[in-house]
């Protein structure tokens, strides 16, 4: 199957960066066509006239679903439990390699 839509290496690289997905150059190459396939498929929708049609973001039909401002002790995790699945912790904190202090 030959796709109409193709992505450039730069496109794939940019999308991967936005999506925070590490990809190798070889993978990038493959994705250029693979993403094109999917976009070809969805491009079918461009035939449909949607002028003036309101988008639907969810189908619950509900509005104003809120919770009261109450502390839910039962669901809170003690520190040890909160940190339980983390690879790296220190003194009750989650740990990551030093990141640039943006703020």
């Amino acid at each position: 199957m030959k796709n109409k839509t193709t992505f450039s290496a730069a496109d794939v690289h940019h999308i991967a960066q936005l999506a925070n997905i590490p990809v190798t150059e070889a993978e990038e190459k493959k994705l250029e066509t693979e993403l094109g396939f999917i976009i070809d498929l969805v491009n079918q929708l461009q035939e449909v006239d949607t002028t003036g049609v309101e988008p639907t973001h969810q189908v619950t039909g509900q509005i104003n679903v809120f919770r009261e401002d109450e502390v839910d002790e039962e669901r809170m995790l003690v520190q040890e439990e909160a940190l339980r699945n983390a690879k790296n912790t220190h003194d009750g904190y989650f740990v990551v390699d030093a990141i640039f202090e943006e703020e």
Partner: peptide, 22 residues
């Protein structure tokens, strides 16, 4: 979520958390 909102006075880190805010 229903976690306590008092980060400044929390005696320990990561003690006012739950599945939602984690």
């Amino acid at each position: 979520c229903g976690c306590k909102n008092d980060p400044f006075h929390a005696p320990k880190p990561n003690m006012y958390t739950c599945p939602v805010c984690l």
